[in-house]
Amino acid sequence: MVKLETTLKNEKTSNSLTLKTPIIGASGTFGYNSEFVDFIDLNCFGAIATKGITLEKRPGNSGERIFEVQGGMINRIGLENVGIEAFVKEKMPYLLEHNIDFLLNIAGSSIEDYEKLAQIAQENNIKALEVNVSCPNVKQGCLEFGLNPESLFKLTQKIRQIYEGFLIVKLSPNTSDIKSLATATEQGGADCISAINTIRALGVKVDFIGNKFIKKSVQGGLSGSCIKPVALYMVSEIKRAVKIPVIAMGGISKLSDLFEFLSVGADAFEIGTANFIYPSICTSLARELNEFIEKNNFKNFEELKEQFKNE
């Protein structure tokens, strides 16, 4: 799909990432990426973001991890993952061997964690990092890194000093001031922003059984089509604040969703929850986008994107 090739470029540093298509599989929906190879057409993927990887292996949360809501779902997986060492040793060779472009999604609980992860990414020539900043900073009262502009600036800067590849920071929507966070990210030296991560939410179900109310609840991150308006708002705010490219995500499952995000300034897209419902959704979206471009006589995706910028 030559027409879909797109390059995300940080004009200030000239750091760039070329994607075969603007469609990226979001973190947490493709495992370590190797599980899907039989079912997907890799030519349709710009990249696949790995599951969030931490320094050490993590078992994740115990108890219920999924709660379905109208138009979406809440998850509290708790970053279950094999840890960076096992990822590099056991999972990465498969990705390289099969030419699967990936964004290494990393998460930490201290700046030192992120620094070590960035170091390992740098040593292993990993092309692109997506930094999950929606994690509690254990050393500083467990406040999320991504919710405070100063700590986000510092974190981004520290990673930037170590990692020379394409640096993407994935922003949390759980803020009243996304613009300051986006600015902090850009000033810290990020090449790109991806947004939005899941929205903090509480799913509650109450049954009345045998004269008693029985409550079941799951607190976690909300995703799915119901968060699209929030994501559209956040992406448009981010675009007002920064010049670096933005990978948009949040409730994307249709071609029209791609156009909506383009109209607020998105440069590429991540698809998350929709993969659970339609395992071939990324493939279909890339094909539909390609067909649209051909049918409507656009030269390529870049030209189609330009049209939105001129609006």
């Binding site: 599980e35 599951k51 997986i77």
Partner: peptide, 12 residues
């Protein structure tokens, strides 16, 4: 309760 049903989301 499952989300992906193929082992990738770690929801179940």
């Amino acid at each position: 309760v499952m989300a992906c049903s193929i082992g990738v989301c770690r929801g179940c």
